[in-house]
Design a binder for these strands. Structure first.
Lengths: 207, 207
DNA sequence: TACTTATTGTCCAATATAGACTTTATCGTC
DNA sequence: GACGATAAAGTCTATATTGGACAATAAGTA
């Protein structure tokens, strides 16, 4: 890492530490297009890894880009913002990326939502309306558990299996990485989800 | 269940439904000292089960007793209140017990706490000050994970093992049912906790 | 003391899982 | 639309976890 860029690493540490453990800060080197420094690395990136900066929309030449949303490898949802950082000659030398794990805040929202909202008993499966499939899955699980007077934490294995099968029946696994996402919510392994789905196919084939 | 008591069962349903799924309502028959009705049964009580009402402090002859705290069989913490209910002749015929699962609210508190509080770096292990061992364990896990910039949800098996061993080293398993409690927080089985502890003893014996 | 009940700890067969792997889709480029 | 590069969808297996039953021990209770 160049000394110019080096000086920003402390800034990364400061930001990450203030919001510990909800925030990760990645400093990208624009020269080599790699990750030069990572504070509170929860995305499990490696130093020196290619930055894939082309994913970020630099149009307009703004210094601050975002915020935008990403999904972490393990299904947690991340709110991110990026800043182009410069050396003393005002040359753009890096991009500082702040990634915030908002999964806990979503959870918190759901607890309050469950308490304060009046459930709609419209006959139509309202799970199908939200456009983001994450939301659809959340919605589905929320109402599935609500109807049974339970919460995800208290589901038995059998119940989780049923939930997964029902969700599959509704086409809930069409989104990208949705198996991963559901696995994390239900505290199951990804493999387990696939096992359930396979068993279900097997069962329906036999009947 | 006598018709007199029966009439209260709808009240139970109403209360439970309003706070679904966080509240359970148990109607005890004072005659037989058994559970006569249960709405949203999360304590896994059976109808007709003995009520153990003597646990409740009736001194003073108050109609409303509590609130007081209990711990559910699976380690969730419950805030409860009880009301003596009467028939038309003002004879006490039952006790209506409202049990609220506060574990989700505690969780929520912790998320906010982690965000808003400034960690004390007093050298002394502050885990030892709280008098309730539940709190001590919570505190321990919170600071253990904080130091490593992770959250309980993201702990690997190996990390959970280390956490359990460290906690055991601090005497964290002296409370009643503490193994159960820790298991639930870490999303482990009770058996797994004991496996870890046994392995640890084994290891230290060999070294 | 003896009896009752709750907790601790162990065991095992059934189940889930990390991680490596193969196959299949998706994307970007020409 | 063919090609190569990536990512995601699935599969597989050796190992770890776990529900539930049980035995051993402790803690009340009368």
């Amino acid at each position: 890492m160049t000394p110019e860029l080096q000086r920003y690493s402390d800034v990364c540490d400061a930001i990450a530490k203030l919001f510990q453990p909800y925030v990760e800060v990645v400093l990208h080197d624009l020269e080599s297009e790699t990750a030069a420094y990572i504070a509170n690395n929860f995305s499990h990136r490696e130093l020196g890894e290619p930055s894939l900066l082309h994913e970020i929309d630099f149009r307009g030449g703004e210094a601050v880009i975002g915020p935008y949303e990403k999904v972490n490898w393990d299904g947690r949802r991340i709110k991110s913002i990026s800043v182009v950082v410069r050396n003393d000659k005002a040359k753009a030398i890096g991009v500082l990326c702040i990634n915030m794990d908002v999964s806990h805040f979503h959870q918190l929202q759901q607890v309050m939502e469950l308490l304060s909202s009046v459930p709609q008993n419209t006959e139509k499966p309202e799970a199908l309306f939200k456009e983001d499939w994450h939301e659809r899955i959340n919605e589905f699980i929320l109402s599935w558990t609500w109807e049974r007077g339970v919460t995800v934490e208290t589901l038995s294995r059998q119940q989780k299996r049923e939930l997964v099968e029902d969700l599959a029946g509704q086409g809930g696994f069409s989104g990208k990485n949705s198996a991963n996402y559901v696995a994390r919510i239900l505290n199951l392994g990804r493999a387990t989800i696939y096992n359930y789905l396979k068993d279900q196919k097997e069962k329906s084939r036999l009947s």
